[in-house]
């Protein structure tokens, strides 16, 4: 049997953590792009379009991320569409992230007083001009803190990719545990690394919240 030193364990975990990080970033970028599109759709106030967004949000917020991942991975391959664990993980995390970001951003836009829309309207600005010059500059400031705060959920969500066989931090932890039979040590390291990834994000979110709440 091979001996694992603490350093060996940590080194292997850190290598796998790169994939956690990469997956988080990819999901966050994908989620942001999709959420921006959905937010724009929602703002058109077209009843049908708004209903579609509503259903999308309910669907991906109302089902466990794990099920979404299973469906993306096994479901897609069953209907003849081969997808790698990596692809399925990114896809499902993107869907998950976007569904939450749309709702977070909706809240940010809705907290702006109705008077901002009305003042723009009586000055003759059209819908897009109002969005661009009045609503979005204010809403984005409010949105920074909760958006960064939510990114912590994305990082933690990547752990579920381990169940479809994608080797990220959690999966690497399980594998090392099977080899070393030192669950406490291995998973303590795993937890520490997750913490090291998430804590700066939480701090950043708190900082942004303070900064923009005082300013308003």
């Amino acid at each position: 049997m091979i001996e694992f030193s603490n350093w060996d364990i940590l080194r292997n975990l850190l290598l796998a953590a790169q994939w956690t990080l990469l997956l988080s970033i990819a999901a966050f970028i994908g989620g942001t792009v999709v959420a921006l599109t959905l937010t724009a759709m929602r703002l058109t106030r077209n009843v049908v379009v708004m209903r579609i967004v509503r259903v999308y949000v309910e669907l991906f917020q109302g089902t466990p991320l794990l099920m979404q991942m299973f469906l993306c991975f096994f479901g897609l391959s069953m209907i003849g569409y081969e997808i790698s664990a990596w692809g399925a993980a990114i896809l499902s995390l993107t869907l998950f992230t976007s569904a939450f970001l749309v709702e977070i951003w909706r809240g940010c836009i809705d907290t702006l007083p109705k008077g901002q829309w009305e003042a723009s309207r009586v000055l003759g600005l059209n819908f897009l001009q109002t969005l661009r010059h009045v609503i979005l500059p204010q809403a984005t400031k409010v949105a920074f803190a909760p958006t960064v705060g939510f990114s912590v959920q994305v990082v933690k969500g990547t752990a579920l990719a381990s169940v479809i066989g994608f080797v990220e931090l959690t999966k690497a932890g399980t594998m090392l545990n099977n080899a070393t039979f030192e669950p406490f040590k291995v998973f303590a390291f795993v937890a520490l690394i997750y913490f090291a990834l998430c804590y700066p994000l939480s701090l950043c979110s708190k900082y942004l919240e303070k900064k923009y709440h005082v300013a308003r």
């Binding site: 007083p113 008077g115 901002q116 309207r121 009586v122 000055l123 010059h133 204010q138 400031k141 308003r216």
Partner: peptide, 24 residues
């Protein structure tokens, strides 16, 4: 109608109780 309101905005100004200035 939206278009109408915009045309109207050229001849009718409005001031609100709550000012509604753009804070940014």
């Amino acid at each position: 109608e939206d278009i109408q309101v915009r045309r109207l905005a050229l001849s009718v100004g409005m001031i609100f109780q709550s000012f509604n200035l753009f804070p940014h």
